[in-house]
Design a protein around this nucleic acid. Structure first.
Lengths: 208, 208
DNA sequence: GTCTATATGCGGATAGAC
DNA sequence: GTCTATCCGCATATAGAC
């Protein structure tokens, strides 16, 4: 069964476009390139999307929608803080490095190609996603398990996670689950330790 | 002390180009834009640089040279591991977010605009810089103060640091020194704890 | 070293037939 | 929905005068 909203042609166009935008960048990709990869001519593309920018925006909006969905789904049923944070790290990495890699990478690295108007719309969506992280991080702050500056924690965590798109190779030794586990342990060491599991270390120094 | 190599005109071109490449991206910036900002015409630019790509490569090579210099200078005289790691974090952030912001951001985010040949040359330089981090991180691994996978630690740390270019605003509440201190404490908590020094949260009244 | 003028090609986008 | 044909502007890069 296909998804409810199966726009067929449009989705196929978006998938191809996302791949090309990621690999070659937005402005180095011509609409002729995309059309050719789809077996059509550039004139036909403009029947589906009025402008090239509209195509980029659609790719990005799909990316945000997917990662929010992924993180929310993973969170369902998790109530304890350590599991929730681990789940978010895992869902984020799976969305970023899995089948959605193209759209997610475009979202993260091509937003400067947008006109100012489109930029604020897309950045607003990104902000909404990032806001999902504030609740558990704030909880960790209250519990004294991370630095007191919750926003800085979020930027640091998301920076480390998002950067994986620049170096992670699926053929490598680490699969995404193992990567998620390791990065979680690095980025939230005191939360992981508090969960009772033996984390990387002894509870060093003062418990804080 | 002014630099020995003051090519004057060429340096001025590179500075302008770096700024435009950062703000508007490589392909959205035309050589006419750059020339106009310098008070010349596009024909004149090609007297100094044979191609637009040559300009990009020169900006990037300058960026790597500067950050390597900055990190090496900061390291001079530091012998203990905590001070060395803190120094590297600070130097990296200062190079990235300070007066070299333009070239550094271009280096990090515009390398896909390079031809394959130029790409491998520039990425080789980046690798050389990243290799600087392996020695202290390996030492921390041996001491059991970070995760055992030194490469993953490096990618995580550099990812978090490099991402600051996407969100840090100098007008904000945090200056670069304070940011460095906080990120160091987050990314190397057990090294920081082992140093016996103050942890970030409690001592805030100071610097500013 | 900088200018003017220009070659040359590719880009996004449109019109209208089928 | 897709095609062909085309408009038109802008981009890199060059030639040659000053």
């Amino acid at each position: 069964m296909t998804k409810v909203r199966d726009n067929g042609r449009k989705d196929a166009i978006l998938a191809i476009a996302a791949g090309q935008f990621r690999r070659r960048g937005f402005e180095r990709t011509s609409v002729r390139d995309i059309a050719e990869a789809l077996g059509m001519t550039s004139g036909s593309l403009f029947y589906h999307f009025a402008t090239k920018e509209e195509l980029l925006v659609a790719v990005m909006e799909g990316g945000v929608r997917d990662i929010m969905q992924s993180v929310r789904d993973g969170l369902a049923g998790e109530t304890r803080l350590p599991e929730r944070l681990l789940s978010m790290v895992r869902s984020h990495l799976k969305a970023l490095l899995g089948p959605r890699l193209d759209a997610m990478t475009v979202l993260l690295y091509e937003w400067r190609s947008l006109s100012p108007a489109a930029q604020s719309r897309v950045l607003a969506l990104r902000d909404a996603y990032e806001a999902l992280w504030m609740e558990p991080i704030n909880e960790a702050v209250v519990l004294g398990l991370v630095e007191s500056d919750a926003v800085l924690v979020r930027q640091t965590v998301l920076g480390a996670l998002n950067w994986t798109a620049q170096w992670y190779r699926p053929e490598g030794r680490l699969d995404v689950d193992a990567l998620a586990q390791s990065m979680y342990a690095m980025l939230f060491p005191r939360v992981a330790a508090a969960s009772g599991a033996k984390s990387t270390s002894t509870l060093s120094g003062r418990g804080n």
